[in-house]
Design a protein around this nucleic acid. Structure first.
Lengths: 385, 385
DNA sequence: ACCCTTTGTTCGATGATCGGCGGAAGATAT
DNA sequence: ATATCTTCCGCCGATCATCGAACAAAGGGT
């Protein structure tokens, strides 16, 4: 469980995290003898998990042979199933994207249709990358609804008719499948890609609805039923007239979600159907749309201010369609958070737009799969086999 | 780090958690040979950490010798420094309370005075329990303000003048000292004492102010600056007139805290100075006080409803002075949470009054110390020494 | 009284790890 | 150019931890 850090899995963890790139690094970090490390590294190379690259720079003596993950022979997939699109990324074990595609696809077409689509795209991407299907080691998938993570089954998802309790992993017989909520995988993607050193991070997705992915101590917090982060139905003050599809009123989503903004704009005589339309209007210089977006930022900020006090994150990342006009959205969010949160919690808090963009979900889903595969336990199993 | 579970520390963890009570249990659980386990157990007995009790029941063969933590020779202290009281509990390594005391004491008297008081009480309790000062292995302390946990220094605590940045651990030279926020240690005490199997728990303290301790995956979540759980200044809707000492308005604490309730009662012609007075009035059957408490429950419920959506806990425990009239407080809390939170999150959610009561803070502080001492790393160090 | 089952210890065998030695490979000094 | 220094890495005998078989202990069942 916890004693001397030394198993092959631990060694690989250090290599994949970039904490160690040479055998001597590993010896220093693990406290194991150099000879033992050499043996461990040999085993990892033997298993096809690690390779040597060209020699590094000398520090006065013989230059060390650099180690890195062996990126051939394996493949991992990250799948982003959205309400109206499907993105599939093929990645190598280091997290590099080998090939990627996105197609319009309605999640309402049901699991068989969507998963069949994923299968065809997967085969195409594998062919593009020149790897056989058998190279696929694990697949991560983000879906737009709550999921029981342990079993990979959607849990009464409101916008995924036909998916309830559907055993997604069983569709892919040949590899491990991990399924999670889309906002969770986006949070993971953003964290690993742009804020790897951050302990506690919130990723807020402002799209049609509003959701939040939670990273605590570097790991995803899913909560007891896997429904953590569902902040779209938190009450905002002063909007008791705004009815929400959930049956309550004054929900954040009903006040500041993309769909709500579009509806409101339409009411005010500026036709808009979706969050993307709202963004387009803002970008076209429509002052009314701009005002609404900024106002939405304030409402989101009100909710986030409470969550900052409660959770005390280091970083809040704002993503989703609306973040395309993040200058305006963030202004409102920042304004309210800095006014309503405690100084101790805001002092070192960064509130930033997504750096990973459209790709965060597929990337994060892939990373979920890769990190599962690279877990020390799993690696030890592979090496000992 | 993660390989075969086998170090002395791991073995002791299994014993202290009650997962294993005999050598064969340990062999089964760790996968180690019986002979190896015997050797490990011998080392633990040698170090005075484990002892054998009378034989257990036979299951058809030789009855196993029962193992348990050796509760003599060590002592641990849990200190609950409140605004107006100081409670010290002396515990053995199993978490049993050996002796305990509580005295009125103002935290405003400053660190030297308070810590000197703790010292004298500690000596008295040690004498009562018949253990020398040298038996004290670790001390945990909860204080009413934010703390930088890593260093044990209070971080700009609003109600602890003179304590800012004071290095509390340095005052106790002979043993390890862990300092945390009082609500955090209460949450820990409640979790370990009453809800040990629960993964995610919130402990809400409703006293003069309102705070929240967060247990995620069985461990305390402190956040980036150690200020997590500060829910007293989250905004509640419809009370923009209620000014708060933090400078904002409509803070939960300014609407539903014990001090706020007392002030409001006084305004309405029923004199009350503190939360305890409010509780006394309710217990005496004052209907106005009762209505205010129930109303306060609804406001707290509004904030908690948001946190339930965000954090998705399994259990919410309500403690603090106001929970003495928990029938009324919880009614309001439950009502609002079940109305405003998502069904998936509330379906398996329990909302219960504290089962640990007045003792939760001192107990939790002591457990913080004990768990630190029993951490595998620390035990391995002790056994190898 | 005898055998069976389970527990716990002893002790030699096994295998993993250690650490010293020497060769490799480049930097630096002569 | 040569020598020396430094660091890296593989080899190999010594050492140490773990294992597993055998045995002793302790109780139940027949």
């Amino acid at each position: 469980m916890t004693p001397a850090p030394g198993s092959p899995g631990d060694v690989l963890t250090l290599i994949s995290a970039g904490s160690a790139t040479t055998r001597s690094d590993l010896a220093r970090l693990t406290g194991l003898a150099r000879s033992t490390i050499s043996q461990r590294v040999d085993a990892l190379i033997e298993s096809g998990l690690v390779e040597e690259s060209e020699s590094g720079e000398s520090t006065g003596g013989r230059p060390p042979r650099q180690l890195r993950l062996h990126t051939d022979g394996h493949a991992f997939a990250g799948v982003d199933v959205g309400a109206t699109h499907c993105r599939v990324a093929l990645m190598d074990i280091s997290g590099e994207v080998l090939a990627e595609c996105e197609d319009p696809l309605l999640v309402t077409e049901g699991p068989e249709a969507v998963l069949a689509h994923v299968d065809t795209r997967l085969d195409r991407l594998l062919a593009e990358a020149g790897r056989p299907r058998s190279a696929l080691r694990a697949l991560g998938m983000g879906v737009p609804g709550p999921v029981e993570f342990a079993t990979g089954r959607p849990n009464n998802p409101p916008i995924m008719p036909g998916w309830n309790d559907y055993p997604i992993p069983e569709h892919f017989e040949d590899c491990v499948v991990l399924v999670d909520n889309d906002v969770n995988v986006m949070a993971l993607g953003e964290h690993r890609n742009a804020f790897p050193g951050t302990g506690h991070l919130l990723f807020v997705k402002v799209g049609t609805g509003i959701g939040c992915g939670i990273v605590a101590e570097g790991r995803l917090h899913r909560g007891a039923q896997g429904s953590a982060g569902d902040i779209g139905h938190i009450r905002v003050s002063g909007h008791d007239d705004a009815g929400c599809r959930c049956g309550n009123s004054a929900c954040l989503e009903a006040v500041a979600g993309g769909a709500a903004l579009a509806r409101r704009l339409t009411e005010l005589g500026v036709p808009a159907a979706t969050g993307a339309d709202v963004v387009a209007l803002v970008q076209a210089g429509d002052t009314l749309a701009l005002r609404l977006v900024r106002e939405a930022g304030r409402h989101i900020g009100e909710v986030l201010a409470g969550l900052v006090n409660f959770f005390n994150p280091e970083v809040i990342v704002v993503g989703g369609v609306l973040s395309r006009v993040h200058e305006h959205l963030l202004a409102g969010i920042r304004e309210t958070i800095y006014r309503r949160s405690l100084p101790l919690a805001t002092h070192h808090l960064s509130i930033v737009p997504s750096r990973t963009g459209e790709d965060a979900a597929a990337l994060g889903a892939g990373l979920l799969a890769i990190e599962h595969y690279l877990s020390p336990d799993n690696i030890n199993k592979i090496v000992n086999a």
